[in-house]
């Protein structure tokens, strides 16, 4: 997802490379190739028109000096990397980069930690465990706008339930969404909540893959529960953990809806990430600056693709071993 944005589980991503080993070698006849490509043609055309072309337009946007008028007429002057120079020199660049890093790292650390703890907990099958595990999926399936607006109201300074609960412990009300000190933490908390189910599901299935015999052997050798976790579960889970974290990283980098709906990147830019900055440049102002917006977007794409390629590499390697 998107959604998690878009932290959305893509189970097939983990499966597809595994397939194909079972293929029987069929003769690649000429007519067979025609038929094969006739079936592939729709998706090939689709990828060219609805993926490649928008991405090309985006690169083109970032290399020209577009105004609203030239956007419609299409005669914007070519300015090379001027838009990129402009965003690197922009006062928003440093903070946006920092916020993106903090948001991503803190989200991932907590999503993964809590997800792993819950996965271990749920792997001791107890009464109702399957049902409760299914219920944990709810935050992940809800439309982001629903989660974001619910959290907005819960974090409301005056009437929000979070401040009421904190007040019961004698903590003064916090201006979660309206104070520059707290806005980034607020959206991070909401994002952690949304990402926990994904981590839980993937790590749980990873735990299922560990043979109970190994635990029995460890128990016979006198390993306690805590030791069993750190010496057996954690190392054996490392491949699945790598996949979970990398995929989570790619999806957290693109989170936009949540932040935009809760804080619009504010107040005064205190929760602006690359994704919301790009949107604000392109769509958020009365006078759009498409060029710089597209340039920020392309930086984001490069970041996502670097980690995406690492993910695919790690996954391929695991599929082959």
């Amino acid at each position: 997802m998107s959604r998690v944005t878009q932290t959305k589980v893509r189970p097939a991503g983990g499966l597809a490379p595994l397939e194909g080993r079972g293929h029987r070698v069929a003769a690649r006849t000429r007519s067979g190739q025609w038929a094969a490509w006739a079936f592939l043609a729709p998706v090939a055309v689709y990828l060219l028109v609805f993926y490649a072309y928008p991405l090309y337009r985006n690169v083109e946007l970032s290399l020209r000096n577009y105004t609203v008028r030239s956007f419609v007429q299409g005669d914007a002057p070519f300015t090379g990397f001027a838009n990129y120079v402009k965003i690197f020199g922009d006062a928003t660049f440093g903070p946006a980069l920092w916020h993106t890093v903090v948001f991503t790292v803190v989200s991932l650390a907590f999503q993964f930690g809590i997800g792993l703890a819950l996965a271990v907990f749920f792997s001791r099958n107890f009464r109702l465990s399957a049902t409760l595990r299914a219920l944990f999926l709810v935050p992940w399936l809800l439309p982001l706008i629903v989660s974001a607006s619910t959290w907005s109201w819960m974090l409301n300074s005056d009437s929000g339930v979070i401040n009421v609960v904190l007040g019961a412990f004698g903590i003064d009300p916090v201006n979660w969404l309206t104070s520059p000190d707290w806005s980034l933490w607020s959206v991070t908390i909401a994002n952690i909540w949304i990402g926990i189910p994904f981590n839980l599901v993937v790590l749980y299935s990873g735990l299922q893959g560990i043979s109970p015999a190994i635990y029995e052997a460890a128990a016979l050798d006198g390993a306690g529960g805590w030791q069993r976790f750190w010496k057996v579960t954690f190392p054996l889970l490392r491949p699945v953990s790598a996949i979970t974290l990398l995929l989570g990283l790619v999806y957290t980098l693109k989170v936009f809806d949540l932040i935009w709906i809760m804080t619009k990147g504010g107040p005064s830019g205190s929760s602006t990430t690359f994704a919301t900055w790009s949107y604000r440049l392109g769509f958020g102002n009365l006078v759009p600056s498409f060029g710089p917006g597209a340039a920020v977007g392309n930086l984001l794409i490069v970041m996502a693709l670097i980690f995406g390629l690492i993910y695919i590499r790690v996954q391929r390697r695991q599929a082959h071993t």
Binding site: L47, P54, K254, G293, I312
Partner: peptide
């Protein structure tokens, strides 16, 4: 049907999932 170039296409699809929606939106 084992099309020639099928592997490349699968790879492109895997990559396509990772493109942030906001960037697609601007191109669209």
């Amino acid at each position: 049907l084992r099309p020639r170039g099928g592997g490349v296409l699968s790879f492109v699809l895997l990559i396509a999932q990772m493109i942030p929606g906001i960037i697609m939106a601007m191109g669209f």
